[in-house]
Computed example of a mutant assay.
Amino acid sequence: MSVSAGKYWGLRRMADSAGRFKMTAVDQRPPIKNPIAKARGTAEAPYDDVARFKRLLVETLQEQSTALLLDPHFAYPRAIDVLSPRKGMILTLEDSVFDEVPGGRLSSEIDNWSVGKIKRAGGDAVKVLAWYRPDAAPEICRAQQEFTRRIGEACARYDIPFLFELLVYPLASDAEQTRDYVEMKTKRADHVLASVEEFARPEYQIDVFKLESPIAAGDLENTAIDTAELFREMGQLAGRPWVMLSAGAGKPEFEAILKHAYAAGASGYLAGRAIWLDAFAHFPDWNRIEDGLRGDAVAYMQRINRLTDQHARPWFDHPRFGGQKFLVPDDAGFRASYPDFENG
């Protein structure tokens, strides 16, 4: 499998020199806005509170990160001046407000935002979350597939890596109901695996998967479940480098998830709340938040980074690349063969 010049450079920017991803998510909107609004007693979270917290996350956690995932609403405008140019920058494209319709959930892009704008703003990669249930209404599945396909085509056109996140969610018929960005405790492994299998198809042009555990974090040590086999199957179905998301898991639970994922060939993590949620619980005491981030959050990142260094697979060692790090033609004709935006 060849790697285009722009995507190769973006993948390198996202990872450390050994090809492992240690990425911190600062793009969350409802998981940050809702607790702030509740604490302030307001219908909407004040912009300055949300932006201030995101800037603090960048300032305190970037040293331990290979890349940071920012949103264009709060994190990019408030923190771009403190983000180190030595760190990769991923920008999110999906709107945090999704449509809940009888047959399932529909995702959409943030208004006035696009792959092209992410590229122009200096982004090293585009991140998109798509809610997906293979057993949702057929028209919902088709819409989510088209949404993803359209973004994959734009990422290919602008030659920027496409980092794709999948989350299963409750349908109206499920006993467990939530609109929060958290793991479904009653999720089925076959739903997770079938979703990965669908979007691993080449027409979506995904470069890196950001995946949830195939089983609920609380069931990882259930001896009745072959956890290792489920992670192995998920990695095989992905067919490209993949990293783990935390989905609101606690620190010990996420560390356990990473151990299983790395044994199955994952190349790192892209996580947020597992790292910074404990510190955020002190809002609006900014001093305690900062102390928690610089203390426990950094210590936790150092621990999972050691785990990542020891056990994660470098992205360029994935079988997808046939053992070759750089597959752009090594000859003087590169400039002629490399397409521009206008000519495709």
Rank of each mutant, 00 (worst) to 15 (best):
G41E: 11
M184L: 15
A37C: 09
P35Q: 07
K185E: 14
S4P: 02
D124N: 13
Y8N: 13
S195Q: 06
D81Q: 10
N222K: 07
D180V: 09
L166T: 08
A75F: 08
V196D: 03
E253P: 04
P30H: 08
N34L: 14
I257R: 01
I206V: 07
A45V: 05
A143N: 05
H191M: 12
E100M: 13
P72K: 03
D159K: 09
R40F: 02
A224V: 03
V126W: 10
F164R: 09
E229K: 15
F74R: 03
R78Y: 06
E197N: 11
R149S: 07
A37L: 03
A256L: 09
K187N: 07
F341E: 13
R142G: 01
Y47W: 13
G272T: 01
I90N: 08
V58M: 01
I206T: 00
E109F: 11
E212R: 02
D180E: 15
P170D: 11
S213G: 00
A263Y: 05
Y300G: 00
L166E: 02
R149P: 00
F334Q: 13
Q177L: 00
R86Y: 11
G88D: 08
Y300A: 04
N112I: 06
P85M: 10
R12F: 08
S213Y: 03
Q144Y: 07
D135Y: 15
S213V: 00
P46G: 05
A279L: 03
Y181G: 07
D95F: 11
H311C: 04
A217N: 01
R288E: 13
F209S: 02
V50L: 08
D159I: 01
R335K: 14
P72Y: 03
A75M: 06
P134T: 04
R288I: 08
A67Q: 02
L327D: 04
